[in-house]
Write a protein that binds this DNA or RNA. Structure first.
Length: 280
DNA sequence: AATGTGACCTGGCTGC
DNA sequence: TGCAGCCAGGTCACAT
């Protein structure tokens, strides 16, 4: 389940492998994984990789020609998507099923997009600016850099609860069910608390916790539950630090109360009814 | 306009 | 052992 820390680890592991390389051949095994209105311009075939970027949970692969930016692709990993780099054209450590796109590089290396559940996808754009001005335009500030002032402004006069607000990528980009549950537990806020009940001090604290948690999760290589691996095939280690996510009906690590679940915005939320206050 | 809900998709788990 | 049914959740279309 890749959220921001996992996507950031994919980005950093991938950029070391592919920046500067030229794509010699692309195979699209499953065309419906290519989304969006514009059909791919050869999925970067013949292009040289300039940089690997990220915004929220989305990755971007930028290419260049004589120093200027050329076509780019945006990759969303969805729930089970993964990107894997193999130094040779073989697929030694990569599962062969559910590979939808394969890129081959000038050095003989291969790069795969695999996504069993196909919630992910790839979007192509003629320039990075097109990507920013269309697909990324509606996203809120990236969760790593969002400020208390930006979040306060986004939450002003809203009637929804804090859990669904933090899951909304238009308010803050990069958080998903796992990290939102962990952040709300750390802040001692019940997931159903209406955002209008939170004061400026609480929102500032929320933002500090978001930054700290994401920083620690990125440092730990992200979290692995079932599927996630970075581009080298390594698993994350942050899941061992979870306080609530995946611990329904177990004891709260702070107060020993049995953790409960509630469905918010169609997602299972685990929380401690003793530690987390429902402001009304 | 803002918010809520269900569909998409498939691997893994549980219960019979 | 094999099968059916349920659950997981990011995003989007549609309903309220």
């Amino acid at each position: 389940m890749p959220e921001l820390p996992e996507v950031e680890n994919v980005r950093t592991s991938l950029r070391r492998k592919i920046v500067g390389q030229k794509i010699t051949h692309v195979s699209v095994h499953r065309p419906d994984i290519i989304r969006g209105p514009s059909k791919p311009r050869n999925m970067l075939s013949g292009c040289q990789i300039k940089e690997v970027g990220r915004y929220g949970k989305q990755l971007a692969i930028y290419t260049e020609n004589n120093g200027s930016y050329e076509p780019c692709i945006c990759i969303h990993l969805g729930m089970t998507g993964s990107l894997r780099y193999e130094p040779t054209s073989g697929q030694s450590g990569t599962q062969l099923n559910h590979i939808h796109v394969t890129w081959r590089f000038s050095d003989g290396g291969t790069f795969f997009f695999r996504d069993p559940r196909r919630f992910g996808g790839i979007w192509t754009f003629p320039t990075p600016r097109q990507l920013r001005d269309t697909r990324w335009q509606h996203l809120g500030p990236d969760a790593v850099t969002i400020t208390a002032m930006q979040l306060t402004k986004s939450l002003r006069n809203r009637s929804r609860n804090i859990k669904s607000a933090l899951l909304d990528q238009g308010i803050v980009a990069g958080l998903g069910n796992i990290y939102v549950d962990e952040i709300l537990f750390q802040c001692k806020i019940h997931p159903l608390t209406p955002v209008k009940m939170l004061c400026c001090k609480q929102i500032s604290s929320l933002v500090r916790r978001i930054h700290r948690l994401l920083h620690n999760a990125i440092k730990a290589g992200g979290s692995t539950f079932k599927d996630y691996q970075n581009a080298n095939g390594n698993h994350g280690r942050f899941q061992s630090q979870f306080q609530v996510y995946g611990r329904s009906n177990q004891r709260c690590k702070q107060c020993e109360t049995t953790l409960q679940t509630v469905t918010v915005a169609g997602r299972t939320s685990v929380f401690c009814q003793c530690c987390q206050v429902l402001y009304k």
